[in-house]
């Protein structure tokens, strides 16, 4: 995973609440292998509707943008990590929103995408900002947890564990393997404490 420390890029406003993962990537595209690239499917159906704010993604001034700004409950719904693959493959490294679906936010961090949490008022300011709407770059500083744009600066929240993972580009699995002896000890005592926890070995049909 590529570490993320600072980011300076265009930020596309998506003034919608409850952008669920079905909208981020409709289920019918999820049969494809990741190697095909998922960016083309990002917000696919919303981008068919010229009146939808999601169409801003296709405007020239947001070409190469790496930051998405949305309302509350971004990424709610299905646990599909493909929603993050679509964002990441499109080029996004950060989503700013006033709340996130828990599973989405966790999936995002595992793919090096920063879920930056701001207050609803701050989200409204970012969404309404003229400079951002014209494609002016936004500066994200992860160590300081700050979003800077024009003459403004807004603080964002991020779980400290996720922050460390993003800054270092860490992978969970390598870390877990280093706890092999703790896992083995747990298994020994757990077999005594919860003998009922295993599936019955020879199930009656």
């Amino acid at each position: 995973m590529t570490p993320l420390i600072v980011l300076e890029a265009g930020a596309c406003p998506l003034p919608l609440d409850n952008v669920d993962t079905d909208q981020l990537i409709p289920a019918r595209f999820m049969k494809r292998p990741r190697s095909d690239g998922y960016g083309q499917f990002l917000l696919h159906d919303l981008r068919q509707d010229a009146a939808n704010p999601a169409c801003a993604l296709d405007q020239d001034r947001f070409k190469g943008c790496q930051i998405l700004i949305a309302g509350r409950n971004f990424g709610c719904g299905s646990s599909r990590e493909a929603a993050v693959y679509a964002l990441a493959d499109f080029g996004f490294r950060c989503v700013i929103a006033s709340s996130f679906g828990d599973i989405f936010a966790s999936n995002a961090v595992k793919n090096g995408v920063l879920p930056a949490l701001v207050s609803p008022e701050q989200a409204e300011i970012l969404l309404a900002h003229q400079g951002i709407a014209q494609g002016e770059p936004v500066h994200i500083d992860l160590p300081d947890q700050q979003i800077r744009f024009g003459n403004h600066s807004v603080d964002f929240s991020i779980d400290p564990v996720w922050k460390t993972q993003l800054l270092n580009g860490w992978d969970d699995i390598d870390m877990t393997v280093s706890y092999a002896s703790e896992i083995a000890r747990f298994n020994q005592s757990d077999a005594v404490a919860r003998p009922w926890a295993l599936p019955s070995r020879s199930p009656a049909q």
């Binding site: 646990s79 599909r80 990590e81 493909a82 993050v84 599973i103 966790s106 999936n107 595992k110 793919n111 779980d159 564990v161 969970d172 699995i173 870390m175 877990t176 393997v177 896992i183």
Partner: peptide, 20 residues
């Protein structure tokens, strides 16, 4: 609880999961 594909891979390999 539901998890994403990276966590599924982690559980496949370790039968454990990191949670807060």
């Amino acid at each position: 609880f539901g998890i994403g594909a990276s966590e599924v891979a982690h559980v496949m390999m370790t039968q454990t999961i990191w949670q807060k």
